[in-house]
Amino acid sequence: MSAEARTTEGAIKVEGVGRTYVDAYGHEVEALRGIDLFVNPGEFVSLIGASGCGKTTLLRLISGLDKPQAGKLFLDGTEIAGPSHERGLVFQQANLFPWETIEDNIAAGLKARRVYKEKKKEVQRYIDMTGLKGFERTYPHQVSGGMAQRASLARALINDPKVLLLDEPLGALDAFTRMDLQDRLLELWGERGTTMILVTHDVDEAVYLSDRIVIMTPRPGKIEEIIPLSSPRPRSRGDPEFLELRTLILEKLHFVSRPKGPEYFL
């Protein structure tokens, strides 16, 4: 499918969504309260915020794996009723099937949708793209955490969803591989116009990739501010504008003003 064909599809609307969990001690935890968010078709949005502010919860609600207690969620105007391959999810933990090889894990979506025969060739493409060549026949417990995460990313990408929900997909990777995969992700996004919703703790990553950055705060989890980024991609990481934005967002997250808060603890 071409980018044009796609950019009219994949709009996400989140309307007054709230979600409260009851933890193991019977205490109520308000993971999300009053979330309103509209993501345009083909838009790249990052969610950023402290641990426990409900980022994973929001992605799970959009994916349909979880249901809100208040409010509604829509994909292209249709209410989200349950999980579907139209909304792919890359889990925070790689969550591969331990009984399948890396290759079969990546092909799982094609098999689940019964299009494996026609799209068999795709598998190798995504194996190459995520740098997993040579590990096709190994099992998940035999590869490193970063490789498992890349396989998990490939497994979601190969399914060509309308909306891709990414829960810190590059979290376990070294800086070099991470930047490489960010570029691959941008390439794919440009090619297909998939709507991307990315959770990240890495401000640089958010600034490098996003159309908009959504800053969230915890207890209860809500949206604090949405920052639009207008400069065209590919962006240069050393650019003064880039650095300025980065500082701005760190300030919003109340970290720059603190004496010694290491930013990767966000």
Binding site: L65, P83, L89, F91, N95, A108, G109, A112, R155
Partner: peptide
């Protein structure tokens, strides 16, 4: 859940 989001 992983399988469900893949369209199983």
């Amino acid at each position: 859940e992983a399988a469900l989001t893949l369209g199983a």
